[in-house]
Simulated scan of single mutants.
Amino acid sequence: MRIEKTALDAQNRCVYSLYKEKGCIGHAVTCADCFEALEIAPEWQSRGYGSYLLREVLRQNGGFDRTAPSEFTAPLPDAGNTAAQALAAKFGFVPRGGLLVRRRVPDLTAVELTHRFLRSTLAPGGLYLDATCGNGHDTLFLCSVAGENGRVIGLDIQPQAAANTNALLAANGMAAIGRAECCDHRELLRFAPPGSVDCVMFNFGWLPGAAHDVHSTADSTLPALQAGLDALKPGGVLAAVLYSGKVIGNAEKKAAAEFFRSLPLADYTVLICEFANWADTAPLPCFVIKREK
């Protein structure tokens, strides 16, 4: 089987044609994220081809992406069309406002929780530091929060990470807002004087896609966290995702958590967010808000 996609017009209407043994046995017509029609030839119905076609169209348009929200709509099927109703229900479409609607939100990972917290807390503008920029996804996120009047600096000790981050920012039109530098995160005050930063973000561990033998450790992490706190302005937020496991052990995660718990209440509000029904090695999102005097 194969599916061919054909653009119909400038309004993003497309037809997806399902072929089997050189013949077209069904098609779906979409307009952006709206299904206008989905049909399977009568002689090929009740064999799973409708499910296959719908699944592939959703997949090609981000409907199964665990990292991004999605929403698709479709017309309500006729009351007597039980097969269409069952197909819609199978893929999570529910009746709402005279249409079928399928909504998905990103899985609540430690990083997604961190992003949601920061987006709800930070305001556009100001200075933001991604102290462990990796491949640049957190830096890109901070650029979206900072906006055109803000500034974001990503740091990483590995040159490839800084290069990957700068390439990602350029590809997403954010090079005017953010940039990455090759630098040990313990030296972040080189790029921001004390009391000048709205947010410092850490996502510890190793560079995704690289060898696991290069990763952060407690020896470098604790000085970097202190530098991050020094960089914050009153009301600023430090966010850190801590990791443990077979490769990196538990020392860094334990030391950082103890460091956060030792911070004086007069100066900081500290949140350590535990996923209570996950494994002990689950990532640990932490937030420190510098209190205003």
Rank of each mutant, 00 (worst) to 15 (best):
I272K: 12
A276N: 11
R291F: 11
T269A: 11
R119A: 13
L263C: 04
G125H: 10
A239P: 01
D198M: 04
R55W: 01
D130R: 01
N149K: 15
P77S: 06
G236Q: 08
E148M: 13
A146D: 10
Y243C: 13
A68W: 12
Y49I: 06
K90C: 02
N277D: 15
K254G: 03
C24D: 05
A32H: 02
F91D: 08
A28T: 02
D78S: 12
T109G: 10
C182V: 13
P194D: 14
V197K: 08
L225F: 09
D184P: 10
L87N: 04
A41S: 15
H27P: 00
G235W: 11
A110S: 13
K254E: 15
G235R: 07
V105K: 07
L76P: 05
E39Q: 15
G150C: 11
P77G: 06
A255V: 08
L122D: 09
A282K: 13
V288F: 01
T121V: 10
P106K: 05
G178D: 05
A167S: 14
N250T: 13
K246A: 10
R151V: 12
R96I: 11
G63H: 09
A37C: 11
C143D: 04
A227T: 07
L284C: 12
D138T: 05
A28F: 01
V105Y: 07
P194A: 15
I25D: 06
I40F: 08
N149F: 09
H215A: 04
K233G: 09
R116Q: 12
K5T: 15
A240L: 03
A89M: 01
L155M: 15
D138Y: 01
M174N: 06
G154Y: 03
H215N: 02
A251R: 14
V214Y: 04
F202G: 04
S120G: 06
G249C: 09
C34V: 00
T6H: 01
K290S: 13
G178A: 08
G249V: 07
M174R: 12
D280T: 07
E274L: 13
V105D: 03
A251D: 15
C133N: 01
V29G: 02
P75E: 03
S70P: 04
G126R: 03
I153G: 01
P193W: 03
A279V: 09
G62Y: 03
C14Q: 00
S51T: 12
E4N: 09
F260K: 06
G26H: 07
A257R: 11
V101K: 04
A170W: 02
I272W: 13
V288P: 00
E71W: 03
G154V: 05
T165D: 03
T217M: 10
H212Q: 09
P42F: 04
L263K: 04
